[in-house]
């Protein structure tokens, strides 16, 4: 099946279920799949980005394998390369979110 992530790109799983250590990890996984299902890029293209991101990681600095950090980086690069989400608006939005007052809805963390 073309949607399979195996070998180096295999996501962390237990009991046959995906493991997300934080909700944002589930969100990025869901985003990548949903965007590819919507035809904005093919799953194989995303997988190429993921393989590159994982291969480029600094094993010593990383400590525990941070699969979803690489997943997020891959998605970000792919979206930038496609002109779907440019780096500048993304940084602006991140800064806005960081500046939110304490006690905002932490629903996505």
């Amino acid at each position: 099946m073309s949607t399979e992530l195996s070998g180096i790109t295999q996501p962390p799983m237990a009991n046959g279920e995906l493991i997300f250590e934080a909700p944002w990890q589930g969100r990025v996984f869901g985003m990548a799949r949903a965007l590819s299902e919507a035809g904005l890029f093919s799953w194989n293209e995303f997988r190429e980005y993921l393989i590159k991101a994982i291969a480029a990681r600094d094993r010593e600095a990383e400590g525990d394998y941070a699969y979803y950090d690489h997943f997020l980086a891959a998605l970000e690069t792919l979206l930038a390369d496609r002109g779907l989400v440019a780096p500048e608006p993304l940084e602006t939005r991140c800064a806005e979110f960081r500046a939110r007052p304490h006690g905002h809805d932490h629903g996505s963390e």
């Binding site: 944002w24 969100r27 985003m31 950090d69 997020l72 970000e76 993304l90 939005r93 806005e96 996505s108």
Partner: peptide
């Protein structure tokens, strides 16, 4: 770091 990642993820989702 995790908090930074969650903000980036949320920012990407909101833009999309």
């Amino acid at each position: 770091p995790a908090s930074q990642q969650s903000i980036r993820a949320e920012a990407i989702e909101s833009l999309l």
